[in-house]
Design a protein around this nucleic acid. Structure first.
Lengths: 325, 325
DNA sequence: CTGTTAGCGCATTCAT
DNA sequence: ATGAATGCGCTAACAG
């Protein structure tokens, strides 16, 4: 900055102001500074200033996985919203492990981020403690069933699960199955499952099969598990999947093996990913506003002053019946 | 750090050394410092030191899009490799626009990254200039057909395209189509296409239909375009798609409409994404090492000293014939 | 609208 | 194995 200032014939502080676009600078001076910077090939160091201001143009983001479109879409929403303000997300992948999440948050805090975006409402005690100590602004996303640290953005996982149960029951299915993944590590999926299970049983229907892969969810896993479940004695009339990938894999199994959907077995997914509408049958699913959740959380981090004092932000989810139930 | 030092009864410099794990520190002192830090809730500021060292534990990454699994897998590879060294990727999305890429690089340089990872070998002149001026370490990924700034990691897009042409020709197809997306903005896809086209024509066969969506590639777009192409007079006997999503969408169309594959039309994709193996038919495709490309590029950024002086790193691609050709 | 002064939190360098 | 002095590149606060 000193060099730029010398070349432009102004003070170093003026260069700083031009670079950040703050304060009142006459057009002539501004142009001169910009030209001088270009001339000597100067690139503003945006992190050095964080030293003086105690924070950086960064938002720390923890995602459970990158293998699932859901979280890359959330990340897209965050990135798009932050981009307008020149901030950037710096992310870590927790692999659905709370203790790993704790380590990640500790690391991300060493970047002095303006805020943190975390998945879900469940965290370790140490995590909560360090958040309280440092006073970072934290947005919790994807789930609103619980008490947020500061603010939550998402929808009710329990309501979504119960709603799908009601839908299947309304279609007359009484012998129902559930197929998930990750051995139940996905706490949001688990919440959906539990509400689903409660609702099914409360109606006097039976949850006849619950299967979870140890692996991550994928079409391949869905196809494999569905084949297994349908091969057992007295298979379910309808299966609720933890997400669309699993459900789509199930549909592929049925297409390949000539199993009639929904006559022989009904299928329901979760998330409403775009690719579903390319499949031969429209899969019944629940639409979730993934991009918007990321965008809303990012916006909340960006505007500490905004009159938005709500702690719980329900962006809603919508059950979309298809041709598979 | 001062506070930690006071509590631990050592100098600030010793705390700095403990935090970074460098230099020789006696176990007693180290433990005392760690305890003191925990006691007062101190979190190391990893970016402040970048001030003194002229760079930060950051690698700037440009990806063309987040809508495509391909690039999230590359990002995973980068993230996994950097994680071991405590660095983090900071990414920007170029939307396949070279001028936007230029802006992003300029922005990423303001983070004083240890290196940059860029998609492809084509960049604007200004981009090249600023890279040269700042002397950042740059890894170019996904393509090796050309002259890298410093080092490239990927495979030959041209070879992959030609190889698929040979495969289709060997199966006896003479009237061939191509379906892409993004109006040709994806320069790697474009290179594949051109080599494919050359090879088809050199063999005396005909490229009878070339269709590109303006939108991003997706199963939905693939299904829609395939329906259109097959509805025209004298449709192609085989279609080469810019990627697996498009090809999978085509297969869905054929399944839904009772079009026999590969009897009525043969289909070939590109990338070898996992989900292909869940489809009712194995789609012919080219396997690409996406995760490994990201990992290799990250490793190269991490080890400036390594004896690796090669500029071109061919990680290879493999044509995998399936049941659709 | 622009400049001066002071200092952010840390790492390098050189002592000891 | 540890400490003191110094400076990195930048911004806040205030002066004018």
């Amino acid at each position: 900055m000193h060099d730029v200032a010398r070349v432009a014939g102004v003070s170093q502080m003026t260069v700083s102001r031009v670079m950040r676009g703050t304060g009142y600078i006459s057009k002539d001076v501004r142009d001169g500074v910009v030209r001088a910077a270009r001339e000597i090939g100067y690139v503003h160091n945006r992190l050095a200033g964080g030293n003086a201001t105690y924070d950086n143009p960064i938002v720390g983001v923890v995602v459970p996985t990158m293998q699932n479109r859901v979280f890359t879409e959330v990340l897209s929403g965050i990135n798009a919203t932050l981009g307008e303000s020149g901030l950037r997300p710096v992310f870590g992948v927790s692999e659905y492990a709370l203790d790993h999440e704790e380590d990640l948050v500790f690391d991300l805090l060493s970047w002095r981020p303006r805020g943190l975006i975390l998945p879900g409402l469940e965290h370790t005690a140490s995590l909560r403690k360090i958040i309280a100590q440092t006073g970072v602004r934290v947005a919790e996303i994807m789930d609103i069933d619980g008490d947020p640290i500061a603010a939550s953005f998402g929808f009710s996982q329990a309501r979504a699960g119960a709603e799908m149960a009601h839908h299947l029951l309304a279609q007359g299915y009484r012998r129902i199955g559930y197929i998930g993944s990750l051995g139940g590590l996905d706490l949001r999926a688990q919440k959906r499952f539990e509400a689903f299970q409660r609702t099914v049983r409360a109606a006097g229907a039976a949850l006849v099969d619950v299967t979870r892969a140890e692996s991550a969810s994928s079409m391949v896993a869905g196809r494999r598990m569905t084949a297994a479940v349908l091969g057992r004695r007295d298979p379910p009339e309808a299966i609720y999947f933890a997400n669309d990938d699993l459900a789509a894999g199930a549909l592929m199994h049925c297409l390949a093996e000539g199993v009639d959907v929904p006559q022989d077995v009904a299928l329901a997914g979760f998330n409403g990913l775009d690719f579903l509408s390319a499949l031969p049958k429209r899969v019944t699913t629940t639409l979730t506003p993934r991009f918007d959740i990321g965008a809303a959380a990012a916006r909340w981090i960006l505007n500490p002053e905004a009159g938005d004092t709500a702690r719980v932000h329900d962006l809603g989810s919508v059950l979309r019946p298809g041709d598979t139930t």
